[in-house]
């Protein structure tokens, strides 16, 4: 596996704030690597140090084996950048912007088909500032992809997009990954990390607190799946406990809660109830998520302070 990005001990302070506090990691070529963490965790600061848009205070960063602060232009040619907050000069049409940015690079793609893939067909003649927030976000994603980059940086890829547009963008990102592009992104959305990223770094207070595949991170927690329901009638606790995979049966606040390993035990439990002619009501199942991993590692909620 070849390395696209390698960071060692990167740090960046703003006054007393250690925005990035000694971070080391590698991004492999051809993977979608995500950073997830709460507001102010240092994601933007870190990604921009890697992009060479901010000067780090310490540590080393290599992109394609080059230091982004020294070989800025060579790296820019081969990378695409989507900034968390970006703008274009006023009164530029979408098509003009794409055409212009394509001219900045030696290599470029057909921006018209790029717009179509991002659901912006028919918008080429619109002024960028008159687009909706979600459309504008997609224009900036298009600008990051216009040079068919070998590596693309996406800071808050789908912020401001509706769920449908989000799914469509994930497809585009998977496609470009499958085409060989390495993706380095940050996100607030757990679902985005879980469904899109090959590997995820959990970031908190300027540090990476865990880094692995999503299943790997969740498995590292050692947490169990659970199901819960209410029941009209006597709980066959002993027989439920005997179901394959079940580790514990308890009653909490009038609900029956069954803990277990794997994904099969809920079916077993429901068959036991059916044998007794009992029906589980208000049935819920729960798998541990990245959220639980983050909570376990930091004692904080990932979504703390996030609006919506």
């Amino acid at each position: 596996m070849t390395t696209a990005i390698s960071c060692a001990n990167v740090s960046k302070r703003y006054g007393d704030v250690r925005a990035v506090d000694g971070v080391s990691f590698e991004v492999h070529e051809g993977e979608i690597f995500g950073m997830i963490g709460p507001n102010g965790a240092g994601k933007t600061t870190l990604i921009e140090c890697v992009e060479g848009l901010r000067e780090r205070d310490g540590g080393t960063v290599e992109v394609f084996g080059m230091d982004p602060e020294r070989h800025t232009r060579a790296i820019r040619e081969r990378t695409g950048i989507q900034l968390q907050s970006a703008a274009l000069p006023q009164r530029i049409r979408v098509g003009e912007a794409l055409d212009l940015f394509a001219a900045f690079y030696r290599r470029s793609t057909d921006w018209r088909s790029l717009l179509a893939r991002l659901g912006l067909e028919g918008k080429a003649r619109s002024y960028v500032e008159r687009l909706s927030g979600g459309e504008r976000q997609r224009v900036f994603i298009a600008l990051a992809l216009v040079n068919a980059p070998e590596l693309v940086f996406l800071d808050e890829l789908t912020t401001g997009l509706d769920p449908q547009a989000r799914l469509a963008i994930w497809d585009v990102i998977r496609d470009i990954r499958d085409g060989g592009t390495t993706v380095f992104l940050t996100t607030h959305f757990m679902e985005e990390a879980e469904r899109l990223c090959d590997r995820v770094a959990l970031v908190d207070h300027g540090r990476i607190v865990a880094l692995d595949t999503v299943p790997g991170l969740i498995a590292s927690l050692g947490a169990e799946n659970s199901m819960s329901f209410t029941l009209d009638g006597a709980v066959p606790a002993e027989r439920l406990k005997a179901v394959d995979g079940v580790t514990k049966v308890e009653q909490v606040d009038g609900r029956v809660v069954i803990h277990g390993n794997g994904a099969r035990f809920p079916h077993g439990a429901l068959s036991v109830l059916a044998e007794d002619g009992l029906w589980a009501q208000d049935l819920r199942t729960r798998q541990p998520t990245l959220e639980d991993v983050f909570l376990a590692l930091t004692g904080r909620e990932l979504r703390e302070g996030e609006a919506g």
């Binding site: 848009l53 900034l83 907050s85 274009l88």
Partner: peptide, 17 residues
Amino acid sequence: SQRESGALRRFRATPLR
């Protein structure tokens, strides 16, 4: 105003000198 809006920064993120 282009500097404040971040438009100049977007150009900086390309190989344009």
